[in-house]
Every structure is written in structure tokens, then in C-alpha cells.
């Protein structure tokens, strides 16, 4: 951590970290807005509002994402050993786990939420009928929930595409350093989720 001049930092690494910093600011904006709304309206995000969330499924998904981070780390270790086949195998495991996370989120959690009448705009529908009502404040939780988990899911899709194309690019043993850069982006998805999961699912 001693090199401070920009010339000493590889461009790819600096670029990925600038992207990650930007992503932290974007997600941070959502999180800051949510925290301030919770402080303003204590009932917003309460058990009555967020009680339909399935904590068990959320926890299982959290652990799936965690394991995918381990497989990505193993892919990076294999890349350092210049073991392309092993690196590719672990990247495939990462992709499968990422898609499993998305599958549970989009295939089970969201449809269950929809079946309870919660959508990203359900608070607006209530607001149109009863402006300023308590129900509207409670329902506002779901606008945040779908926005933040949706945006997080979008990053899993982008991260999966990045891993897929990096995997194709290392076939000849070239560009193995990109495995680490793709991994850094994938870990960002975990970094954001360790805040979103307790904030949305557990603090009610």
C-alpha cells in the first residue's frame, strides 16, 4: 500500500476500482435514502410493512451468494497458478450460483411478493387513493425493496456476463489477470448484499 502515484497502478485495476467506487456511491444513495425514510417514518419498514418477506429464503440466498464468492476466489487462485482449466471450472460454478441466486429471487421471492399485492408502484396506487395515509408509508417499503433488490439483481446479470466473457478470453492462457478484475466486480455484489440483506430483511 506504499505506491501512491497513478503511474504505478495498472490501468485495468484502477478502472475497475473507479467503477466499484461509483457503484458504491450509487447504492449508497439508495441506502441513505432508505435510512432517512425509516428515521422519518418509524412504521415504514416495520413488521407490518415488511412482514411478508421470507427471511429463510433470504438467508439461503445470502449463503448461495457467499459460496459464489468463494468459487470466484478459487478461480482467481487458479489463474495465479496459470491453471486455465481449473480457473474456468470455478468461474462456471460462480455463474451457476449467481444464476441460482437470481432464479430464487425472480422465480420465487418476487412472485410471492406480487401475490401478496406488493409491487414497486403499490405505494403510488395507495397514495392516489389516500394521500398521506399510514398505509402509503408502510407500502413505500416495497418500492425501496423492489428498486434495490432489482438493481442488485441487475448487477448480478452484468457480473455474470463479465465472468462469461473473461472466461472466453482466457482460453489460450492469455489475460489471466482479468479473472481477478472480474472477481473484484463480483465481490462488489456481495459487498452490497451484506448491507441490503440485514437492512431489508432483518431490521423490521
Amino acid at each position: 500500500m506504499s505506491d501512491v502515484t497513478i503511474e504505478r497502478v495498472p490501468k485495468g485495476r484502477l478502472g475497475v476500482w473507479l467503477l466499484i467506487a461509483g457503484e458504491i456511491v450509487i447504492f449508497g444513495g439508495f441506502i441513505a435514502s432508505y435510512i432517512l425514510a425509516r428515521l422519518e417514518y418509524p412504521e415504514f419498514g416495520s413488521k407490518e410493512a415488511a412482514g411478508d418477506l421470507n427471511i429463510v429464503v433470504g438467508t439461503v440466498n445470502t449463503l448461495i451468494l457467499l459460496i459464489s464468492n468463494w468459487t470466484m476466489v478459487k478461480a482467481h487462485e487458479a489463474a495465479l497458478e496459470k491453471n486455465v482449466a481449473k480457473a474456468k471450472s470455478f468461474m462456471i460454478y460462480t455463474l451457476v450460483l449467481g444464476l441460482l441466486f437470481l432464479g430464487i429471487k425472480l422465480g420465487y421471492e418476487w412472485p410471492t411478493d406480487f401475490s401478496h399485492g406488493h409491487t414497486i408502484s403499490s405505494s403510488k396506487a395507495i397514495a392516489d387513493q389516500a394521500p398521506g395515509s399510514e398505509v402509503m408509508k408502510v407500502s413505500l417499503f416495497w418500492s425501496y425493496y423492489f428498486l434495490m433488490t432489482g438493481f442488485h439483481g441487475l448487477h448480478i446479470v452484468v457480473g455474470s456476463l463479465v465472468i462469461f466473457f473473461v472466461m472466453l478470453g482466457i482460453s489460450g492462457g492469455q489475460n489471466l489477470h482479468r479473472v481477478e478484475l472480474a472477481g473484484a466486480y463480483w465481490h462488489l455484489v456481495e459487498l452490497v448484499w451484506v448491507i441490503l440483506f440485514p437492512m431489508l430483511y432483518l431490521i423490521q
Binding site: 500500500m1 506504499s2 505506491d3 501512491v4 502515484t5 497513478i6 504505478r8 497502478v9 485495476r13 484502477l14 476500482w17 473507479l18 466499484i20 467506487a21 461509483g22 458504491i24 456511491v25 449508497g28 444513495g29 441506502i31 441513505a32 481477478e180 473484484a184 465481490h187 462488489l188 459487498l191
Partner: peptide
């Protein structure tokens, strides 16, 4: 994410984003 092994410039960029929030 190996931030503790990264050059100071990258550490600065990462933590600055958290400070902004």
C-alpha cells in the same frame, strides 16, 4: 476484494466513496 493489498491510490478511491455516502 483485496483492498488491503492494493496501492494507496485505490484504497483512497474506495474509502472516499464510502465517505461521500
Amino acid at each position: 476484494m483485496h483492498l488491503k493489498y492494493e496501492p494507496a491510490l485505490i484504497t483512497l478511491v474506495a474509502y472516499l466513496s464510502v465517505v461521500f455516502i
